[in-house]
Simulated assay, not measured.
Amino acid sequence: MNRVAAIASAVASLAFADAGHAEGFAMNSPAGIENTLRNFNGTNFDVKHISGDTDGIASGSLSEERGPRDVHMIRAAIASNARLAHRLSEQGVRVQNVINADQAADGSIVFYYR
């Protein structure tokens, strides 16, 4: 009986681990990150400078590379959130220089800029 319980526990653990991965993907999808940025309170974030010519695409980020359309959506979402735009400005980051944003599982966001 203990063996059956152990197997059931292992299967349940794997199912929950996979659900967490799916949630992480959804929150960093273009639509997910855009929605998050429009409503983000602007207090729990980090900024990272990306040097070199990125040609509109941020690489080396936590979730995925973003194309020019996604970068535009991220910038528009930040611009629509006055508090967030102001907080980024205080960190020396101009909205038009942001090339990516990733949300961590704890709700914090990393902004990549050039």
Rank of each mutant, 00 (worst) to 15 (best):
M1A: 08
M1I: 06
N2I: 14
R3Q: 14
V4A: 09
I7S: 07
I7F: 12
A8Q: 13
A10Y: 07
A10P: 01
A10Q: 10
A10W: 06
A12I: 13
A12R: 13
A12M: 13
L14R: 06
L14Y: 04
A15S: 15
F16G: 03
A17G: 07
D18R: 09
D18A: 14
A19L: 14
E23P: 02
G24S: 14
G24Y: 11
G24V: 06
F25S: 09
F25I: 11
F25G: 07
A26F: 05
A26G: 05
N28K: 04
N28C: 03
P30N: 10
A31N: 06
A31F: 06
A31Y: 02
G32C: 03
I33Y: 03
E34F: 05
T36A: 15
L37K: 07
L37P: 04
R38H: 02
R38K: 07
N39M: 11
N39L: 10
N39A: 13
F40Y: 13
N41V: 10
N44L: 15
F45E: 03
H49F: 04
I50D: 02
S51F: 10
S51H: 04
S51W: 08
G52R: 02
D53H: 07
T54F: 05
D55C: 00
G56H: 01
G56S: 00
I57L: 10
I57W: 07
A58N: 05
S59A: 14
G60T: 01
G60K: 04
G60W: 05
S61A: 04
L62S: 07
S63C: 05
E64C: 03
E65G: 04
R66M: 09
R66V: 09
P68A: 02
R69C: 00
R69K: 12
D70A: 09
H72L: 08
M73E: 12
M73S: 12
M73P: 00
M73V: 02
A76E: 13
A79D: 07
A79M: 06
S80Q: 02
S80M: 02
N81G: 08
N81Y: 01
A82Q: 15
A82H: 14
A82G: 15
R83L: 12
L84K: 02
A85W: 09
A85S: 15
H86Q: 15
S89K: 13
Q91A: 15
G92I: 09
V93D: 00
N97I: 01
N97S: 10
N97D: 10
N97L: 02
I99W: 00
I99G: 01
I99Y: 00
A101E: 02
A101S: 05
D102V: 06
D102C: 12
D102Y: 08
Q103V: 12
A104E: 06
A105R: 14
S108D: 11
S108E: 11
F111V: 11
F111M: 12
Y112L: 05
Y112E: 04
Y113F: 05
Y113H: 04
